[in-house]
Design a protein around this nucleic acid. Sequence first.
RNA 1: GUGAGCGUAGUUCAGUUGGUUAGAACACCAGAUUGUGGCUCUGGGGGUCGGGGGUUCGAAUCCCCUCGCUCACCCCA
Length: 416
Amino acid sequence: MKFQKPKGTKDILPKDIHKWHFVEKTIREATKLFNFSEIRTPTFEYTELFKRGVGSETDIVGKEMYTFVDKGGESITLKPEGTAPVMRAYLENSLSAESPLHKLYYITSMFRYEKPQAGRYREHSQFGGEIIGSDSIDTDVELILLAKEVYNRCGINNFKLKINSIGKPSERKTYVNALTDYLKKHFNRLSEESKKRLGTNPLRILDSKSPDDLIITKEAPKIIEHLTKDSRNRFDLVLYELTRLGVNYEIDFRLVRGLDYYTDTTFEFISSDLGAQDALGGGGRYDGLIELLGGKPTPGVGFGSGIERLIIVAEKNGFTFGEPSSPKVYFIALNSSAKEIAFKIMMELRKKNISCETDLLVRSMKAQMREANKIGSDYVFIIGDDELKNQKGILKKMSDGSQQNVEFDKLREYLN
RNA sequence: GUGAGCGUAGUUCAGUUGGUUAGAACACCAGAUUGUGGCUCUGGGGGUCGGGGGUUCGAAUCCCCUCGCUCACCCCA
């Protein structure tokens, strides 16, 4: 094979495309029901945006970005996540001047240089939502509800919602100190990776999967205990509201998430139908991000969700995404003048939004019948010598094999 | 970046201790008294056995290198 797709990428073939269409349609319907507006941002941004917005100590920025210098000498990065670009667009276009509140969603490719694995690609698709301008707990909840709505509409009901609060930066600071003190006492038993992380980003040690780390972090001080009354209260209100609306959740004090910009609420949807990469989607609040990117202090909350993973989980649950589409009528034209008539009728039908197809390989009638059957046409319309003479074609209904003679210009009336 | 497993037709796989023109099923194409699908039957096309090197009279089969895929770690969607 001469050319192969780059590692970690994929082709979505015609036989599978209906799944994507279904998911995309579902996302657009759900976001509409929640009154979110779509925003599209560039595929690449200046590298600095992610360094600042996501955080230099994060894995995403530290080792996973597709970064290159363009011909103008600018450092460019293919977007590895959705929130920072949306915030950049929000600021650059002064959206706050139009309205104090924005509810935005996107569907787009993301790029991360990682080793591909089950449900993990170097180019993958995410849909995400952001609510900018309000710090109300209702916005946290609404985003969770939006994600849940999309999952449910794709036949996914068995996911688990994990939720936590990591508080305000000041609280987190005192907590990180307490955590660091605790971890230092167990330094020798920490995994190598965590030892390194203790100096750079101790919070991340909490979601290490290393068995040794797990034993240690299990007894570690919990961030909840370091929240102020206000933050604690806020978290409780989010939980209360979720409970009131019948949304099941599980508090996970280790859920700190991989991006630096989060504050207060963090959450993650996980599914046991995925492999080791069990996160279907995740997000949280980022009240400091816009200010960090040079805007006025503005609260916000958002989430991102992997579309490939969504499709994997939906399929494991037997969801079918509807049927691949097939043309309504397949025209079997048995000679060149029949073909001329067929194309004329097809042109009219297509204008009326009726899909048609005809043989383009000059094949035998039998072969054309087979083809019509294979692609799932509802009808076949046969035009041969006799039909040309009578100006009537044979309309055959594939489901029961019944057929009748139909005048060329009346065909439309016989289709349903 | 680390580790493990796997690479034979479009797909899923067989291929005996290395031994003649590498097989099956499904898919695809074409026929079955010549203008009618789905079932059945018959036939056909299609493989540099991932690639390169080596051992051997002889390699899909053994050895080395390489590429790719998959899964796990790390981390995430």
